[in-house]
């Protein structure tokens, strides 16, 4: 049984009296422990698809199954990191993580939750900032807290909606490295990750598999397996000829997916 099974999903929006198809007949299966990226330009429905996986929206048609069970709303088996607004601004960094833990691990004692939050904040190197409020932190630090919270919740699935989209390139790469090393080094079974991005390099460096989506209506265009073995050394990898070759093919796909939009639209 696949970890996540998306069966023939369609999604509509009505905006200013016009019906607009965000997703049309999308089907996709994701295996346990897989790192999958949804890649596409804006309007391709990648974030909508993720919000359906989150359980925040219900599709007009089709179903999503996780471990064979139909998704009808948010669940304790999924943790989410958004581009913005993941954190509650009135809670300190640590309180945010503790609050996340409280939602999934109700059996832990107060001390255990505190200790767990501290452990994960240490993993994202924010021990010195744990008593700061989100607005007192930089964008990169806020996303690190959000990642710490998502990982500390110890869910089997991690859903990430352009989590590094608002960061400067340098911070972005350093957070990609951090995410990958945390994902790989976790005890027990690896989490299944669904990662939404419009950044080709980010998708290649992080993913096992890349789903290229196309807009108008949002649907899956192509699916690509990333051939580079793990662990990946970011700086060494992007210098190789194989990487450049793979990247240019992917960019071409990406470009074609967008071109298709212009033909249709």
């Amino acid at each position: 049984m696949s970890k996540i099974e998306i069966r023939n999903i369609s999604m509509d929006y009505v905006e200013k009296n016009t019906r607009f198809t965000a997703l049309q007949n999308v089907s996709l299966t994701i295996e346990k422990g897989e790192f999958v990226s949804l890649l596409g330009s804006s309007g391709c429905g990648k974030s909508t698809l993720l919000s359906i996986l989150e359980g925040l929206r219900s599709p007009v048609e089709g179903e999503v199954y996780i471990d064979g069970e139909r998704v009808t709303g948010p669940g304790k088996n999924r943790a989410v990191v958004f581009q913005n607004y993941s954190l509650f601004p009135w809670m300190t960094a640590k309180k945010n993580v503790v609050y996340g833990i409280e939602q999934t691990a109700r059996t832990l004692s107060r001390q255990e939750r505190q200790a767990r939050a501290e452990k994960f904040l240490q993993k994202v190197e924010l021990t010195d900032y744990q008593n700061k409020f989100p607005l007192q932190l930089s964008g990169g630090q806020q996303q690190r807290v959000a990642i710490a919270r998502a990982l500390a919740m110890d869910t089997e699935i991690l859903l990430m909606d352009e989590p590094f989209g608002a960061l400067d390139p340098r911070t972005r790469v350093s957070l990609q490295k951090l995410l990958l090393s945390l994902w790989r080094s976790e005890e027990g079974e690896k989490k299944t990750v669904v990662f939404v991005t419009h950044d080709v390099d980010e998708a290649i460096y992080l993913s096992d598999r890349i789903i290229v989506m196309q807009p108008n209506p949002g649907r899956i265009y192509r699916e690509v397996h990333v051939p580079f073995p793990r662990p990946r050394d970011h700086d060494a990898l992007i210098g190789t000829k194989e990487y450049q070759q793979f990247r240019s093919e992917l960019v071409e796909l990406f470009y074609h997916s967008d071109l298709a939009e212009e033909v249709v639209g």
Partner: peptide, 14 residues
């Protein structure tokens, strides 16, 4: 209250 914050809370399963 920001929709994003409410979504974040819902996604946590609060």
């Amino acid at each position: 209250i920001d929709r994003g914050i409410l979504d974040s809370a819902r996604a946590l399963g609060v």
